[in-house]
Simulated scan of single mutants.
Amino acid sequence: MKMTREQLHDLVWSMPMTEIARKSGVRDQHIARACDGAEVARPRAGYWQKVEHGKSVTRMALANDRYAASDVITIDASGWTIS
Rank of each mutant, 00 (worst) to 15 (best):
A61D: 13
R59Q: 15
G79I: 09
D10K: 15
Q49D: 13
M60V: 11
S14V: 06
S78I: 11
A34I: 01
D76H: 05
L11P: 00
M60W: 08
D71N: 15
K55P: 00
L11F: 03
Q49P: 00
G37K: 07
M15P: 00
S78Q: 14
S24V: 07
M60Y: 10
G25F: 02
M17H: 06
D36L: 08
W48H: 03
D65E: 14
W80D: 01
S70D: 15
S83K: 15
S14C: 03
E19N: 09
G37P: 00
T81R: 15
N64T: 15
D65N: 13
R42H: 14
K55N: 12
K50Y: 08
V57T: 14
T81V: 10
W80C: 08
L8I: 07
H30Q: 13
R66F: 15
D36P: 00
W13G: 01
E6Y: 04
S14M: 02
G46F: 04
R42E: 01
H53P: 00
M17F: 02
K50R: 14
D71F: 12
H53W: 09
S24M: 14
A68P: 01
V26L: 04
M3Q: 09
D71K: 08
V40L: 00
W48F: 07
A21W: 02
M3R: 01
M17C: 06
N64G: 12
V72C: 06
W13I: 06
R44F: 01
M60G: 04
W80P: 02
A69N: 09
P43T: 08
A38W: 00
R33W: 13
A34M: 05
V12K: 00
I20P: 01
V72M: 13
S14H: 04
R5C: 04
R33D: 15
M17I: 10
Q49E: 13
R5S: 07
E52Y: 10
H30I: 07
K50C: 12
R44S: 10
C35E: 07
A41P: 02
T74W: 02
Y47P: 03
W80H: 14
D10Y: 00
R27F: 02
R59G: 06
W48N: 11
A34G: 03
E6F: 04
V57C: 08
A45M: 08
D76K: 03
D28S: 12
A61I: 10
V12G: 00
E52H: 12
K23G: 01
H30A: 12
T58F: 11
M1A: 11
K50M: 15
D71A: 14
D10H: 09
G46L: 01
H30L: 09
S24D: 08
Q7D: 11
R44H: 09
P43D: 08
G37Q: 08
M3D: 03
